[in-house]
């Protein structure tokens, strides 16, 4: 049985690398990523599980890192926005101007990326179901929808 009391060293697998950090059981994954590992791409928006700005992938599935303890991430593969480079969804976000201030963007991209990996041919219903987990306050969401459609095309080689 694993157990943690007080500050201890934790080894996490993040973006394909082993990363070490001294954490306390009450540290959230978001906090450790940002403050201990310098991965500030995941953003705090509400720290309450509501906005999705802190979304990262855990074993390929999107999760809200503000309501996960860092100790829970042990043994799982974590992917943050820093781990994505030139993916179809990132290219599509640029081409479709799917952001304004950009604060929600890493969260949206992580979620959409996971969706496209899981359900490449996601239809409107699925896109709505997945992406309703994130809030964007700047755009009217139209450009984000278009970016997802474009990423599907890019990934499909069209």
């Amino acid at each position: 049985m694993k157990s943690y009391k007080g500050y201890t060293q934790l080894v996490l697998r993040i973006n394909g690398q082993m990363r070490k950090a001294v954490v306390s059981p009450n540290d959230t994954l978001l906090y450790v990523l940002r403050e201990k590992l310098g991965l500030t791409g995941a953003k705090p928006g509400c720290e309450n599980g509501d906005c999705g700005a802190c979304t990262v992938l855990m074993d390929g599935k999107p999760v809200k890192s503000c309501i996960i303890l860092a100790v829970e991430a042990e043994g799982h593969e974590i992917t943050t926005i820093e781990g994505l480079k030139d993916t179809p969804i990132q290219r599509a976000f640029v081409e479709e101007s799917a952001f304004q201030c950009g604060y929600c963007t890493p969260g949206f991209i992580m979620n959409a990326h996971a969706m496209l990996n899981t359900v490449p041919d996601a239809d409107d219903h699925t896109i709505k179901e997945w992406l309703s987990s994130n809030i964007c306050r700047c755009t009217g969401y139209e450009e984000i929808k278009r970016a997802v459609a474009k990423a599907q095309k890019i990934a499909g080689g069209v």
């Binding site: 059981p25 720290e47 100790v71």
Partner: peptide
């Protein structure tokens, strides 16, 4: 941020969980 400290246990089976509790 959670403002108080606590311990964290991750038991591997039911018995262990009940026992640690």
């Amino acid at each position: 941020m959670i403002s108080f400290d606590f311990e964290y246990y991750r038991p591997d089976d039911i018995k262990e969980a009940a026992e640690v509790y």
